[in-house]
Design a protein around this nucleic acid. Structure first.
Lengths: 126, 126, 126, 126
DNA sequence: GTGGTCTAGACCACG
DNA sequence: GTGGTCTAGACCACC
């Protein structure tokens, strides 16, 4: 799996790494139990400070996406417990996003079609 | 319209103000052409510095949500030109959001139902 | 002559009025000796405060574009003495403008063609 | 690169800084990828508040002249996408400028010669 | 009265 | 050490 980082982007680098790994898990590119590269390796490959990669791994671990085994290093959590969600209609980010799209003239059909398509693209291997 | 700010939240205050106004526009609470409170008033009401509110207004203006009529002050842009969107299926934030929800076990039906409901709630006045 | 003002524009209204009158003089729409509408009339027509129009007229008078006769009101100065210019190559605004266009990839030919065309369009009646 | 600010000038300081950097890019004094001084340094050197310099950088970033690499700070955007221009003959500032010069008796030849010279002086290093 | 600009500090997130 | 955010107060241009 290849990480694409944009150092000029406003989202922090550690968050970009975290996001890409989450995306990788969702679309099946990273499978539960798969080993992730050691922090130093990933840092060297991406030209990022080890501390930054470390922060990403810590965050992913805290969110349950990752587990670290002392002997094997980091791997995708094979037994993740999904987070408890309040009703989706209260999800602040989703609400804001849909509001922005609505104001930009996106129709309901377009929105639902895109959501459906994006969802279907996930984990094609299933 | 009442703004609710959370000073403990990590999202910057100026961004919270911006977000709430965008939400207000989307759900019809703020109508195009409507006058917004002067920077100083809003600052006093929310207990925030004028510079912070100023920053929000600047951002909203830059995004086209707001205009400042030199005679009357700030108002919701009555003739906003919607932003050009690349296909929604390439929208990074939407993609990430759906991925996170998917990994958390949200079903496609739940997702679409929530999006549909959120969309329908917007601009009830229409 | 019709003034088009944009109250949301960042350039002050009095300056917009001044600019449009200068443009009118340059393109021959306003001819030397021509009477300008009284301040109050212009203010009413454009929906602007009389003080604002007054400021425009004062500025134009100070720049020599306008003279006011107590009996006849304001008119385009029929005997304007052109301002003394330092060498054009030192003109700060021109320098900045050309720099911006250059950085935006405008070729020298495009620039000169546009300048030539714009110049030729002025005072067609001559 | 040395910035010359005129505190008596009516153009805002942050805009003067912005203008000088744009000029520097155009004439080749600042090359794409070159690192700019940190906000604090530039503020100290010019005797201006950090917030003011910050505002300049924000503006330059928004205009695409500058990027801030999260690791290295601010630098001249090495991959700037030129802005889309409507036909130059519709450029309001250029139109106004030429009109003013025309009314001041500048001949077409003088104008074109100056534009040509100014353009040729840009980016001598090329 | 309106927004726009600026100052002199301070704190924080990021790398 | 870097930019990003915020405060408390001030002054100014514009209308």
């Amino acid at each position: 799996m290849l990480l694409k980082l944009d150092f000029a982007d406003e989202t922090p680098i550690y968050m970009q790494i975290r996001n890409q790994i989450v995306l990788g898990i969702a679309n099946g590119e990273l499978i539960p139990g798969e080993k992730l590269p050691p922090i130093r390796t990933l840092a060297a490959e991406t030209g990022v400070n080890t501390m930054t990669v470390n922060k990403s791994y810590q965050l992913l671990k805290q969110e349950g996406y990752l587990i670290t085994d002392r002997r094997l290093g980091a791997m995708i959590n094979p037994a993740r417990v999904p987070e408890q969600h309040p009703p989706l209609t209260e999800h602040p980010a989703l609400k804001l996003l849909i509001s922005e799209l609505y104001v930009d003239g996106i129709s309901k059909e377009e929105l639902l079609a895109a959501c459906s398509k994006l969802y279907d693209e996930l984990n094609k291997g299933e």
